[in-house]
Write a protein that binds this DNA or RNA. Structure first.
Length: 203
DNA sequence: CTACGGATTTTCT
DNA sequence: GAAAATCCGTAGT
């Protein structure tokens, strides 16, 4: 399948977040394709958005990549233990990004299972099967995404997004998760997910 | 199936 | 020194 190009990511962040649904996130690890269908995303609208790390034009070493060009990865550590994977959107100087919140596992199921639970796909319990990549921290563990993959151009690296089958599905917009500190921005419907998909993190 | 609290450490103030 | 774009295990419906 074809990779998405940089123009895709340079558009309005909410449009990018919505259109990433149904696409496939791929990480080539030692020549193996490990991938999942994107089923849940969130848009972070930068300077104006009280939930964004770049709110108010804040520039720190961590946030700096969001000020760069579109289609670059932004990976950060959350709660000291987990990673979150984002893709930077918009033109240079506009610090916005899309957080990938959940995947439906597609390829490399054994690798994903071992990354998450140290056992093969066959040996998973029903609960483990459901919890492979249905959350932002979980999918990073599943696809071996860590801080070393921060600030990487997803147009020409081993980590990228490609076109999916994109068969008809409905998109649900809802409030974003885990940003109760963001005052009025807490309530904007900038989280998107595929309706009736069982891999969405929170219903 | 829901509710709760603890884990753990980077990052910025 | 405090907060943080989360996850997991346990306990109770």
């Amino acid at each position: 399948m074809k990779r998405l190009n940089r123009l895709f990511y340079e558009r309005d962040t909410r449009v990018v977040a919505k259109e990433l649904l149904g696409k496939v996130l791929v990480h080539e690890i030692n020549g193996e394709r490990v991938s999942g269908k994107i089923v849940e995303t969130e848009a972070y609208l930068g300077v104006e958005d009280k939930a964004a790390h770049s709110y108010g034009g804040k520039r720190t070493p961590r946030v700096e990549v969001m000020y760069g060009k579109a289609a670059v990865s932004y990976v950060f550590i959350i709660y000291g233990m987990y990673y979150c994977f984002n893709i930077v959107t918009r033109e240079e100087g506009v610090p916005q990004a899309v957080l990938i919140r959940a995947l439906e596992p597609l390829e490399g199921l054994d690798t994903i299972s071992k990354n998450r639970f140290k056992k093969s796909y066959d040996e998973l319990t029903k609960v483990q099967m459901k919890n492979l990549s249905n959350g932002p921290g979980k999918l990073c563990s599943a696809l071996s995404i860590n801080k070393s993959l921060n600030n990487l151009d997803v147009i020409n690296s081993n980590l990228y997004v490609e076109e999916g089958e994109n068969l008809g599905f409905e998109i649900v917009a809802s409030k974003r998760i885990g940003i109760d500190y963001a005052e009025e921005y807490r309530d904007f419907l900038w989280r998107y997910y595929i309706k009736n998909n069982r891999n969405v993190s929170v219903l």
